[in-house]
Design a protein around this nucleic acid. Structure first.
Lengths: 159, 159
DNA sequence: GCATATATTTAAGCCCGTTTAACTATTAAG
DNA sequence: CTTAATAGTTAAACGGGCTTAAATATATGC
């Protein structure tokens, strides 16, 4: 039992320390970008989830379709994404990242993760070799968990 | 070299997967709390950094003193923090979390980290025992890095 | 086909976080 | 002691993100 708790606690403490850092970098970068939080969220959602409809984006963001339609305008004008008719159901629009949009998301991710470079350098080669298997396992299980829980991202629970 | 890159990449990939999850939980919880992002940030800053002045909070948040002074009002009214004169320099106010404030921050952290409970359960006891040393080392180095870089949180660089 | 439901957009208006500017109070400097 | 600098608060105004409501267009069911 204490073993179990220890593992969870160390995991939590490490997460908190990492989050503390990454959150602030994220907020800062967000401000500088001139984009709203919902707009950033939209770009990341499209990056991870692929092309999406206005309705599903609104569902994911927890705001109305109207709000999404409006925030998309400036993103399109900025050349970060495209809005095209869905040939299967012409009521819908297919919202999709452009190459510039993808590049912006990747740049943002890299910037947010830049401090990991310093962290990696804080380990000797032998330490790295020792830690690597554990890290791989952590990553794998996290990805499995994310997949299993599915679209956990939705903020609204409509039906 | 490829060893080095591998370590960094696995680290990055795990972080991205974890962030993807935690960010959304954070945003959602944030909306529900009825507090602004700056207010949440203020509470977390005070929790991690200890009592602070209005000026330093403004510096940390990247907004004006006036904005901070105003956002503090509702936090004080909610009983989450106190605003007291600094006896050393009576121009300053000492902003400090109340017990309720601390409890709210801890509740928020726990909620954001709830999924780690599921992650921990995804490992067998032997796997946990195997991973634990690596995790401890990662946590320790991250904390050292945070300490070394100091108040990396400031958004403005007004010399 | 006709009525209903779904998907999106537009326009008007609201709310709230922020800035600016003016003011008070305390400390530091000459 | 007088001037200047620093810390904080207040009030007015701005801007942006969001909602509501109305309008358009397409799809589905009877």
């Amino acid at each position: 039992m204490s073993e179990k708790d220890l593992f969870l606690n160390v995991l939590r403490e490490w997460m908190e320390a990492s989050m503390h850092r990454s959150f602030h970098i994220f907020i800062k970068h967000n401000r500088e970008s001139g984009l709203s939080l919902s707009q950033i969220n939209t770009l990341f959602r499209l990056y991870h989830h692929g092309p999406d409809s206005v309705h599903d984006l609104a569902d994911h963001l927890g705001i109305t379709n109207a709000a999404v339609s409006q925030l998309l305008d400036s993103l399109i004008e900025a050349g970060l994404l495209t809005r095209a008719e869905d040939p299967r159901d012409r009521r819908m629009k297919r919202i999709e990242l452009t190459e510039d949009g993808k590049a912006l998301v990747e740049k943002s991710m890299k910037r947010r993760q830049a401090w990991l470079f310093d962290l990696a350098n804080a380990f000797s080669d032998s330490e790295k070799a020792q830690i690597l298997p554990a890290l791989k396992l952590l990553k794998q299980r996290t990805l499995e968990l994310n997949k299993k829980h599915g679209p956990l991202c939705r903020v609204n629970e409509n039906k």
